[in-house]
């Protein structure tokens, strides 16, 4: 028998380049379900793609849905690391490196 939290998870695979919003994933997020986003088939992400991921995670967060990024190829994972967007790093399970604030 599956555990409750496993039941609630949907798995969504991103295929090819993530250049803008992924409508199918947006619908799943809108449903308020937890989502596992599979990046194993994703080979490129644009600036707009990054921004959309951030906004999607913001929406999911406000709906209390949990989003996990899995099977991320190193090239993409490095993009996430260099971009330093906290919500994306959180979805990857990566510690969020708090950027050093300006010396004020």
């Amino acid at each position: 028998m599956k555990k409750d939290n496993e039941k609630e998870h949907n798995r969504h695979k991103i295929v090819g380049s993530l250049l803008r919003n992924d409508e199918a994933l947006e619908k799943v997020i809108a449903s308020g379900k937890n989502v596992v986003v599979d990046f194993s088939q994703c080979n490129f992400i644009s600036v707009a793609g990054l921004e959309w991921l951030e906004s999607m995670l913001l929406k999911a967060g406000s709906g209390k849905a949990k989003v996990n990024f899995v099977d991320i190829p190193p090239t993409l994972y490095k993009v996430f690391k260099v971009a330093r967007i906290p919500s994306i790093l959180d979805a990857c399970g990566s510690p969020i490196v708090s950027s050093v604030n300006p010396n004020c």
Partner: peptide, 12 residues
């Protein structure tokens, strides 16, 4: 931020 995201994407 714009420059940061662009740098991240450029790495690919």
């Amino acid at each position: 931020r714009k420059a940061r995201l662009a740098a991240a994407v450029f790495s690919q």
